[in-house]
Design a protein around this nucleic acid. Sequence first.
DNA 1: ACCTGAACACCGTTCAAGT
DNA 2: ACCTGAACACCGTTCAAGT
Lengths: 205, 205
Amino acid sequence: VAKQRAVRKKRERYHHGNLRRALVDEAVRTMRKSGVGALTLRGAGAALGVSRTALYRHFADKDALLAAVARDGFVGLKGALDAARGRAAALADQLTEMGFAYVRFAAENPAHYRVMFGGFLDRCARDPDLLADAGAAFQALVGAIVDLQREQRIRQDDPQQLARFVWAAVHGIAMLAIDGQLGPEPDAGVTLFRDSADRIRAALA
Amino acid sequence: VAKQRAVRKKRERYHHGNLRRALVDEAVRTMRKSGVGALTLRGAGAALGVSRTALYRHFADKDALLAAVARDGFVGLKGALDAARGRAAALADQLTEMGFAYVRFAAENPAHYRVMFGGFLDRCARDPDLLADAGAAFQALVGAIVDLQREQRIRQDDPQQLARFVWAAVHGIAMLAIDGQLGPEPDAGVTLFRDSADRIRAALA
DNA sequence: ACCTGAACACCGTTCAAGT
DNA sequence: ACCTGAACACCGTTCAAGT
């Protein structure tokens, strides 16, 4: 009976405009369990007790849904980076802590991470807000670098350029790890970042 | 008439066991023109004047074909890296030259590059030789680092570990560029590597 | 802002029966 | 080592007609 009521309640909420949110969550859930290849619009609809065509009221097509999934991912990534920055005891540790958080985010959400970055430009054409969400995550990194520059802890180059370099290094580690290119160990990415943190520090000195 | 003969000749070769090679080439061609999403087994067969089911004589399924495409890519990447290393005037320039070649390879073959790295571990299960081809490309990088160490030009850490760091940095630049995350400019990756080469050098010093 | 139901074109893959 | 031809299950997407 309680279950019945839960379903009823859910149903009602869909009519209040939450189907969009529910679809993104369902897509993320499916991807986490079975990869992005397992995500089908028909399956997502069925899982939510909604017709196959209902989602076209909220998304132009499958790619638009994936763009929303990507945006959701960048919001989560920014949250993880901000939290890591706050956790750092000393200013000098902020960037390292953020690097660990970044690689860990990717390792824990591999399918989601791939959607965030795969064909980014094409997805931005579908949903211009994606660019802003991705930019916000990137700015968390730029902010940490600007702070370090202000305290004279790292070189005074263009912070955007330095941030791009650090981003590429961490993104490369995350991607290689996700794709299994660093070996089958699930924490291969975290390990490589641990080994590389001193190199990155030296690069910025 | 000449065309007719070419087709005839091609046909004959297929029966000599070259259909496998022709399928890989056709897949690469299609991906280059229209992306990996445009690659279909039916289309590849039609383009080669071969039945829809003929390729199952050479590949277990579509993923096995993509594994062969990935292997082909790693062979090409290793060739580009070796050539770049040979081009370098001084020993100190080898790594930089290889970095440019790497990023350029990815920029010129984006779809191919994605197939090489996407789901690498899963693809290795399909075709164990993929691991060897990828390893050979990686060893080109390790070799350059070992040479620099022998001449005391860079730090004496574990060369495999240093190579992984450099690889991740360059891979990250290449991936961000391919996905348009560095902006719509087609040479955004090469530009970022140019800006980052000094950082990487400092990291290895 | 949803529903049902039917339909379209396009997939990967399998199989039977040939040469 | 290829072929033809038929079939299966599964896609994304569209449309008409409802509530």
